[in-house]
Design a protein around this nucleic acid. Structure first.
Lengths: 169, 169
DNA sequence: AAGATACGTCAATATGGCTGTCCCATCTCC
DNA sequence: GGAGATGGGACAGCCATATTGACGTATCTT
């Protein structure tokens, strides 16, 4: 594949990973990259009177239909009360629906409604555009490195959860 | 430097950058990586009764001493009122001090006090540990790719600001 | 002298987290 | 069958962090 010219301002990483400079560069790029990416969907959310917390729930339900509440709590790492409010908002807007589990009827299985799917897909388009542009500008090998470093930032005990999300789509 | 074996769960990026799978992988790793990294400093902040907003200000003042208020506003992209509260908290705890600009006396130049420097350095240690571990596990080339992709996520109009931060340390 | 700029501050509001407590339905295991 | 564990919901109250809009003061620019 044709790799577009890399952004010229990025020199290669030196082997001295512990040097403060390189750590600060990572901290800053993560901060700006993450915050700018999340801002790219705020407008779409505001049209429905929703915030980023709603998007996170929507996103992970889209990603893994029939997720249970406790699965989602583990993923988002927030309290039941905080998530409850968010899910109530999403149900009230007919974006999410629940069924009780077949094996364990105490569980609630979360799914997006057709409306929810359409809305999540619309928000995802903004993310896709941003990330695809960045991927294309950086090139294939950079994307692999991007993933590897981020995986290393996730504590060991959380990695299985992330891998589980990513194995089936 | 000895590079530990890369995390095995990361296959190489395929050339099809636009595939939904690859975009979702990036979104998720960014989410987990960013949130886990920021959580790593919460404990240190809580000891002083401060939050993440305070750390962000502290961080960028450490990074670029004699920053003005409006510089910091541009970097953080929050409102004057929000920043004002944060800076008042930091001043009250003797972590930040201001002088008025020599060329333009309307400006306030922000600096860390000795206490502020020590505290920022303490928080930075947690970031350094997390990032250095991830860098080492991923390897030098991955780190370069990590940076390149993140730079691509920053809107063009903000890139000069980020580059300016990183050029002098 | 007029206007723009840098900064501060007031009041009101929204969002998204938190803790603690209590409840109900259901499953598991003895 | 009964005890206890688990999945989920809900109450009340609190905190941190962001927002808008308006207004004030000092200082710089022209």
């Amino acid at each position: 594949m044709a790799v577009p010219s890399p952004i010229p301002a990025t020199p290669a990483a030196s082997p001295l990973f512990l040097r403060e400079h390189e750590v600060r560069r990572g901290v800053e790029l993560l901060f700006f990259g993450y915050t700018r990416l999340t801002r790219s969907i705020d407008e779409g959310l505001a049209e429905h009177g929703l915030g980023r917390a709603h998007h996170r729930a929507l996103y992970f339900i889209a990603r893994q239909p029939d997720l249970t509440i406790s699965d989602l709590l583990r993923i988002l790492a927030i309290t039941k009360q905080s998530l409850g409010r968010v899910l109530n908002d999403l149900s009230a807007r007919n974006l999410v629906e629940t069924r009780s589990g077949s094996a364990d009827r105490r569980q609630k299985l979360l799914r997006l409604t057709e409306q929810g799917k359409a809305f999540e897909a619309q928000l995802f388009e903004a993310l896709r555009t941003s990330l695809a542009t960045a991927y294309a500008a950086a090139g294939q090998e950079s994307v692999t490195g991007f993933w590897r470093v981020l995986e290393g930032l996730i504590p060991t005990e959380d990695r299985a959860m992330v891998a589980a999300l990513q194995k089936d789509i």
